[in-house]
């Protein structure tokens, strides 16, 4: 692990654009990942997540824009890759090799960067089978081998594409604990995932991309706070629904029980709604806690996702 100045972003992309034939896979993606955070990178299949990650790793080249990792141009692979660990979304390992041999080969490519005492600890925590050819392992067991390969050089930046895919729940918890420890050491995790509750649980900030464009980048709390929420109000007597419908950001979906109950949708904060409701005898106010998944779905809308 090398020290990184706190002001240097772990990842910085500016206007990354990539086209595959007629398909615009990335359309001017700009984002910044701060050092020491766990950064969630969300989007449906085909949104451009993997394309962005492959550009960061210099596997593919952008048509326009640039990417810097830990202060280096992403194409300076010897300097950059020494400081990153990567787990691909579709992990392919050499089936005839045992995990142990793979660890040795990968460590050999990193010279003195890997401590096998640490590799042993990782294997113990993730329950990795080290002496069986990886071709004979289950998907989840191979994923654990991939995680150890990514983690073993103690990189300043971990780029993980669906890291908990195929893992059993106990190991998933262990992986998330490991990532929290990485963050606690001041290192950074770039976490691409479809598992929204998991992202919500572990990430500090989240970026959502759609059709190659960034549609959201903020802290988990801020993203959730901006989400529309459903509120169910019950009053002791009838209330005028139009008073509520006139409020900014409030939509009345239903008025029930002779206008004693209102089901409303609120975008933004609840202040105006609460103050208006306080003008009547309000028996109860139930607000459904938004999840990141709901935010994700609302951003993509029905059929809005790229295929």
């Amino acid at each position: 692990m090398e020290t990184t100045a706190a002001h240097i972003p772990a990842i910085q992309t500016e206007g990354l654009t990539k086209r595959f034939g007629e398909v615009l896979a990335l359309d001017g993606l700009s984002l910044e990942v701060r050092p020491g955070e766990i950064f969630g990178f969300l989007g449906p299949n085909g949104a451009g997540k993997t394309t962005a990650i492959r550009i960061l790793l210099d596997f593919i080249r952008p048509a326009a824009g640039r990417a810097r990792i830990l202060g280096h141009d992403c194409r300076d692979v010897e300097a950059v890759h020494r400081r990153i660990g990567y787990l691909p979304g579709e992990l392919s390992l050499y089936p005839n090799y045992t995990a142990e041999r793979l660890f040795r080969i990968m460590a050999g490519l990193r010279r003195d960067q890997v401590s096998f005492e640490y590799v042993g600890r990782l294997c113990e925590r993730l329950k990795v089978q080290r002496d069986i050819p990886v071709g004979q392992l289950s998907h989840g067991s191979r994923q654990k081998v991939g995680l150890v390969i990514a983690l073993m050089p103690r990189p300043d930046l971990l780029i993980l594409d669906e890291p908990t895919s195929g893992l059993d729940p106990l190991i998933q918890v262990e992986v998330l604990d490991l990532l929290r420890e990485v963050r606690a050491e001041g290192r950074t995790v770039f976490f691409s995932s479809h598992n929204l509750p998991e992202v919500e649980r572990i990430c500090d900030r989240v970026a959502i991309i759609r059709q190659g464009r960034l549609v959201e980048l903020d802290s988990i709390e801020a993203v959730k706070a901006r989400q529309t929420r459903r509120v169910h109000l019950t009053f002791a007597g009838p209330v005028p629904p139009e008073r509520f419908a006139a409020l900014e950001g409030v939509r009345v979906d239903e008025a029930l029980d002779g206008n004693r109950q209102l089901r409303v949708v609120v975008a933004g904060d609840m202040d105006a709604l609460v103050k208006t409701a306080a003008g009547f005898h309000c028996v109860s106010l139930v607000s459904e806690q938004p999840s990141l998944e709901e935010e994700f779905l609302s951003l993509y809308g029905k059929g809005g996702a790229a295929s």
Binding site: V77, E78, Y86, M106
Partner: peptide, 8 residues
């Protein structure tokens, strides 16, 4: 990908 993710 596995090889090229290393510093080479």
């Amino acid at each position: 990908d596995l090889l090229l993710a290393q510093p080479i």
